[in-house]
């Protein structure tokens, strides 16, 4: 009897009595940190897988500068990377407003916490919107290309102007009888994907009539530039073309290797989902700040925890930006 009471006294007093914080951080904050560690490893797995595929196709990977060239309201202007740079800046800035909100929380200043949280939410929403716009441009495509029997992509190049030429600029429109098969006018159990607006025959006819047009391969030279064939080589290569490709989906894209689009959709999509959920969590915390929940509680630790998540999203973007757009 005496012994057991001695033990219980020992285990309930001092350091064993609970309430100690060896890491000087609450449990919620620690859990958020370790979630971030695991999520960081998930993202590294994705980015390293991208690196693997890229090293495996080191001589034919699409060139990001040629893919992401759009800027809002500047239609047709070749603006590589400016828009992604702006998106990066928006995300870093929303990270800053988040730190300022956390800082205001340490001073228990409710109005300033609310104000900075609101700015953070706006920044996040602008970023998600920008990403959607990037996806739209990527899916829609710009120049168009043809796919060969081998699955490789051929892009068209104007030898006179020394730049790429979109297929709709040189394709000759031919009258055509072929319509997309729909189940209400024929065999209902046969499906067909939508026919392209410009058919392969039209592209090939346009190619034959314009001797100054040649093709660019997926393959790149030592300088990192796409290899451009001369006209005779182009004529023999294009004879095995099987279809016109415009834009991108998970199976093929006009930029080159299908894996490029697959990783683009998957990694930026997964990151965009993180940003989206971050915005939702920020809105919940923002409402709680307005309701005075944390003021009653006496501390703004919750703001700090969502802050950590939000910065992590920014951190991941810094890496995605480097490996998808720069390297």
């Amino acid at each position: 009897m005496q012994a057991s009471s001695a033990i219980s006294e020992k285990t309930t007093s001092g350091s064993w009595g609970g309430g100690e914080k060896p890491l000087v951080a609450g449990y919620g904050k620690l859990m958020m940190w370790w979630f971030i560690v695991s999520d960081a490893l998930t993202f590294s797995g994705f980015l390293v897988a991208y690196g693997f595929s890229r090293f495996k196709n080191i001589d034919s990977w699409p060139i990001a500068d040629e893919v992401f060239t759009h800027f809002p309201f500047l239609h047709g202007v070749d603006a590589p990377m400016y828009y992604v740079a702006l998106m990066t800046f928006i995300l870093i800035f929303s990270s800053v407003t988040m730190v300022l909100a956390v800082d205001a929380g340490h001073h228990n200043n409710k109005n300033r916490v609310a104000f900075y949280m609101l700015l953070t939410i706006i920044g996040g929403a602008v970023f998600v919107g920008s990403q959607a716009w990037e996806w739209k441009n990527f899916i829609k495509g710009e120049y168009g290309a043809v796919e060969l029997q081998t699955g490789k992509i051929l892009q068209f190049y104007d030898l006179e102007k020394n730049k790429r030429i979109p297929i709709d600029e040189f394709a000759v429109s031919l009258t055509q009888e072929r319509l997309t098969h729909e189940d209400n006018v024929g065999l209902w159990y046969v499906e067909e994907s939508k026919l392209p607006e410009i058919t392969l025959d039209e592209v090939l006819e346009g190619f034959n009539r314009n001797p100054n047009i040649t093709v660019r391969l997926e393959a790149i030279d030592e300088k990192g530039k796409k290899i451009i064939l001369n006209r005779e080589e182009a004529e023999s290569t294009i004879s095995s073309a099987t279809r016109v490709v415009k834009g991108a989906n998970l199976y093929r894209n006009e930029y080159g290797n299908p894996l490029f689009a697959d990783f683009f959709f998957f990694i930026t999509g997964f990151h965009g989902f993180h940003v989206f959920s971050g915005v939702i969590i920020n809105i919940i915390i923002f409402i709680n700040v307005l309701l005075g929940t944390y003021e009653k509680r006496g501390h703004y630790d919750m703001v700090e925890k969502v802050g950590l998540y939000w910065h992590f999203v920014d951190l991941v973007w810094v890496f995605v930006f480097t490996f998808f757009y720069l390297v």
């Binding site: 490893l41 590294s44 797995g45």
Partner: peptide, 21 residues
């Protein structure tokens, strides 16, 4: 953990990627 695991993963997959190439 991140400083140990990420370079490890990088090393293995990038070396294998160039090998397959």
């Amino acid at each position: 953990p991140l400083l140990i695991l990420i370079p490890f993963l990088l090393f293995i997959l990038l070396v294998e990627g160039s090998y397959i190439f």
